[in-house]
């Protein structure tokens, strides 16, 4: 089992260099890894890092010109502070409560009314977070300290609503995405010829130089093409949506990728009760995985479909699972009373 080096020095494995960073974005260089690795990290940062976002809205009064559904969607998109979410909040589907509770949700309320002649603009800062909540306050980054615009009210119009913010991932709904964008680039000089530039007369003249071009050696004129070359330096530009700082997005991305891989190992160690050397059981991804417990492994395993672990409560058919009566998929507006 020496196929993978188990002894790692600091210059082994993927390297990371931070080119430019602030509280909202980070430009990093990943090197000494393959394209699949860099791309897996990019994909996981885009879609599978949990954050908190408004999921249910209970509308008491909405006399604004914006319909309830429209307003709910706008509220869902408001970025909420999600730092260290894994220590503070659990998924509603993993919680024992009926619909939502303090362990799995954060309540924000909004009450705004226009009394004067001038129109009033309702901003994200007007969302009042429930007392004692450890996270979920609206992200405010503009110099005026107002946050995103939610809606505008004319004289006599009123908004009164309660929002339930829950933990989720962007695979379920994009409002949970921690990143606004992840830039991804490699081979700025196109030495590998993965790109075929379209041109009128001369591609070199007509195409602008990549901003990462100065970080790599330009190709030498007349150099023979290397057919075996593979990309090994990747330029990532992580742009945070505000809910998480870029370093936490990266760290969480690494963590959830490890968890994915650990789940694969776990499946095999779980169903090996027949005993062929994988008895190490489940280990959290934070630990160092040694190559120790590998061994045995004959052919002909009884394959699964027995004793599968289910994350949501055991038993029950049909609508008996926790999902039965749950409100999911998008922003729900529960009630709209006292209209007009």
């Amino acid at each position: 089992m020496d196929d993978y080096d188990t002894i790692y020095g600091s210059d082994r494995g993927p390297q990371i260099t931070i080119k430019e960073a602030d509280s909202r974005h980070a430009q990093i260089v990943l090197s000494n890894c393959d394209l699949a690795f860099a791309n897996a990290l990019r994909r996981i940062m885009l879609a599978e890092i949990p954050t908190i976002a408004i999921d249910i809205v209970e509308i008491q009064t909405n006399t604004s010109v914006i319909p309830d559904e429209f307003l709910c969607h706008r509220l869902g998109m408001v970025p909420l502070d999600s730092t260290n979410i894994d220590d503070k909040l659990i998924y509603t589907r993993d919680c024992f409560c009926d619909q939502y509770c303090e362990r799995c949700s954060v309540t924000l309320s909004l009450h705004a009314r226009c009394t004067g002649e001038d129109n009033v603009t309702v901003y994200a800062r007007d969302l009042v977070i429930a007392e004692g909540a450890q996270l979920g306050s609206p992200v405010i980054n503009d110099p005026e300290g107002q946050g995103t615009v939610i809606c505008k009210l004319r004289k006599g119009q009123e908004l009164r609503l309660k929002c339930i913010a829950k933990k989720g991932i962007a695979k379920e709904h994009a409002k949970w995405a921690p990143t606004a964008a992840v830039g991804f680039e490699y081979d700025p000089w196109n030495k590998l010829r993965h790109i075929d530039y379209w041109y009128e007369e001369d591609a070199k003249e007509e195409w602008p130089k990549s901003k990462y071009a100065d970080w790599e050696e330009p190709p030498i004129e007349g150099e023979p093409f290397n057919y075996d070359a593979v990309p090994s330096r990747f330029y990532l530009d992580i742009e945070s949506a505000g809910s998480l700082p870029p370093d936490e997005i990266l760290q969480q991305g690494i963590k959830y990728l490890q968890e994915k891989l650990a789940a694969v190992i776990e499946t095999f160690s779980n169903k090996n009760e027949t005993g062929d050397g994988f008895g190490d059981g489940v280990r959290s991804p934070g630990q160092d995985y040694s190559m120790g417990g590998m061994g045995g492994g004959g052919a002909g395993y009884e394959t699964p479909y027995q004793g599968g672990r289910t994350p949501f409560g055991g038993g029950g058919f049909g609508g008996a699972t926790e999902y039965g009566g749950r409100l999911m998929g998008g922003h729900k507006c529960v009630a709209a009373v006292a209209m007009g």
Partner: peptide, 17 residues
């Protein structure tokens, strides 16, 4: 399994770096 384990190790190092 070896691939999974080596990747977890690589990611751990990446995280530290």
């Amino acid at each position: 399994l070896a691939a999974c384990q080596s990747l977890i190790g690589d990611l751990q190092m990446l995280s530290q770096k």
